[in-house]
């Protein structure tokens, strides 16, 4: 049978026809009654197959359903689709005109697990007074780092200009972090808490490409060749 009603305007012949139908009148307790049906189905699974079934909800059955739902902490706001004459004053009121709507399942959206960036790229020079703090990883500066500016990185620091300010690498206890710069005129270099000030940095290294790393608890600075 085609379930979709076609909007055709043909003459329709009406014929009366009667069918034999089962009438289900749930009895209390409903749970027991459903168990009976289950048992019937277990004995002969095809018993209701293709057969019309009418559900007869007597006043007692409705009362019982509402009561047993309330026992389960389900409060019934209203009853729908029942002849109003069948509802008594103690029952929830009849509701009509309800429209179906889709209930959105409010699943907790898993935040898209974008991997956190592990490096920071700065394309402009870092000016005096600016402080760049990036504890998640490496910092790369394409310009220079001015005197009085500072870079604080969880990982290594790479400076393609002149380092005139302070560079602090491996601040989270990463002793493998290093500092690289194209020209070293740093005020202070620090790796994992070990530091050297400008005064301690060998004058011979000045104005040359250099790198700094930790060897045990001694900071080494060497020219990059």
């Amino acid at each position: 049978m085609n379930a979709i009603a076609q909007p055709t305007r043909q003459l329709v012949r009406m014929r009366g026809r009667s069918y034999v139908a089962f009438v289900f009148a749930p009895v209390v307790p409903i749970v027991g009654w459903l168990e009976e049906i289950d048992a019937t189905l277990a004995r002969s699974p095809g018993f209701f197959a293709g057969k019309p079934v009418v559900l007869d909800l007597s006043e007692a059955a409705i009362m019982h359903l509402v009561a047993s739902l309330e026992q389960r902490n389900v409060r019934v706001l209203g009853i729908e689709g029942v002849d109003p004459v069948r509802l008594t004053a103690s029952m929830p009121p009849l509701l009509t005109g309800g429209r179906s709507c889709v209930l959105m399942q409010n699943e907790l959206k898993k935040p898209e697990t974008k991997p956190k960036p592990t490096s920071l790229l700065l394309e402009n020079p870092v000016r005096s007074g600016q402080s760049i703090v990036f504890t998640e990883g490496d910092v790369t500066v394409l310009g220079s780092v001015g005197s009085g500016a500072e870079i604080v990185a969880g990982g290594s620091i790479h400076i393609y200009g002149t380092l005139r300010g302070r560079a602090m690498a491996g601040v989270n206890g990463n002793s493998a972090a290093r500092i690289y710069c194209q020209k070293i005129e740093a005020e202070l270099l620090a790796i994992d808490g070990y530091y050297q000030t400008a005064e301690e940095i060998d004058v011979a290294l000045r104005n040359r490409p250099a790198q700094a790393w930790l060897e045990g608890d001694v900071m080494r600075i060497a020219p990059l060749s």
């Binding site: 000016r127 007074g129 001015g146 500016a149």
Partner: peptide
């Protein structure tokens, strides 16, 4: 020069 560098950072 260093103060100017600081001011340029603020202008930016």
């Amino acid at each position: 020069v260093r103060d100017s560098d600081r001011i340029i950072g603020m202008l930016d």
